[in-house]
């Protein structure tokens, strides 16, 4: 029997062991850091020869499984803030719709590709660097066993804006009192960026939930997976209807690996300190950013490419 599994929508065969391995690796990352893993999986699938549109759409489908598995595991451990997750999800849907319209306008004017690529690099660089610096500082602080909790200097500007917003409410689980507008706007921003870049946007959502919404790291991971499962389920149906781009065989192969990987990742995350988790995620984000940067700088192998490649 051939190990080459035929993908009827991608119209191409791929090695079944490779697909299971890719799913397992990304699922592990997903369960460990609470990100969907789209920023890793889609480029990996394109490198494996899957058409980009099919890669992105099928990846959304497998994220549903990884996020459901991860969110379920975190929910059992009490790591999901459902109230916060629902508000983020509402914002995400609104922002996602806005992002699709922006991309339509930019595609018509020919500026979409530049926007997508520059947004990718800039965001990954900012998020990765901030997380790296912050986690290193935090690890050094705990290593020196200093008792200084917060450096003097008052409340940051973005927090003061957040506190100034109306209808402040208390989120018991996260133990924060903020306006629901803040998580809604965070969700809308990530949804917009995510739909422009064709991703779930978990790698932006996670730092924003931690730094801007001031949620504890253990809740950030579970809550993000919760809202990402719903978001990607919506994207899967839309992609299946609008583009016929969801390859069920590809998605199932990936999700078998990713569902198991997510469970292992969720358990591994409990063995690591929050600062170590952030440091690892920062390194992964910066590596992905460096890979995309090289792709922008080095001359491509082919001057023509299949439509749909960012």
């Amino acid at each position: 029997m051939s190990w080459e599994l035929y993908l009827p929508i991608a119209r191409h065969s791929a090695n079944v062991i490779m697909l299971l391995g890719m799913g397992g690796f990304v699922g592990f990352i997903s369960g460990m850091f609470g990100v969907g893993g789209g920023f890793l999986m889609t480029p990996m699938l394109i490198m494996a020869g899957i058409p980009p549109v099919v890669a992105a759409a099928s990846d959304s489908n497998q994220i549903v499984a990884a996020a459901t598995s991860g969110a379920y595991a975190h929910h059992r451990m009490g790591n999901v803030d459902l109230k916060m997750g629902c508000i983020l999800l509402l914002g995400n849907w609104g922002g996602g719709t806005l992002g699709v319209e922006i991309i339509k306008i930019l595609r018509a004017s020919g500026g979409a590709d530049l926007l997508i690529k520059s947004t990718y690099v800039v965001l990954l660089a900012i998020v990765g660097t901030l997380m790296l610096v912050e986690s290193l500082r935090s690890i050094r602080r705990s290593a020196s066993q200093s008792n200084e909790v917060e450096p003097a200097g008052g409340t940051p500007l973005y927090l003061r804006w957040g506190q100034a917003m109306p209808w402040a409410m208390h989120f018991e689980k996260s133990d924060v009192t903020i306006s629901p507008m803040l998580p809604f706007l965070v969700g809308a921003f990530v949804g917009m960026i995510g739909s422009i870049m064709g991703l779930g946007g978990g790698f932006i959502m996670v730092p924003l939930m931690y730094y801007l919404l001031r949620m504890p790291m253990y809740l950030v991971v579970g809550t993000n997976l919760f809202q990402e499962a719903f978001l990607c389920a919506n994207v899967t149906v839309l992609q299946a209807v609008a583009n016929h781009a969801v390859d069920l065989v590809l998605a199932v192969s990936l999700l078998v690996g990713s569902s198991l990987g997510a469970q292992v990742g969720a358990r591994a995350s409990r063995r690591l300190h929050a600062d170590q988790l952030r440091l690892l995620l920062a390194v992964i984000i910066l590596l992905v950013m460096a890979k995309i940067m090289l792709g922008l700088i080095l001359p491509p192998r082919f001057m023509l490419d299949v439509k749909g490649v960012h």
């Binding site: 499984a65 990884a66 459901t68 997510a262």
Partner: peptide, 16 residues
Amino acid sequence: GLLAVAIAVMAGFLSG
């Protein structure tokens, strides 16, 4: 599309 989502959700819960 709905079948794809249902399979993914079931797989997620099953592994959990």
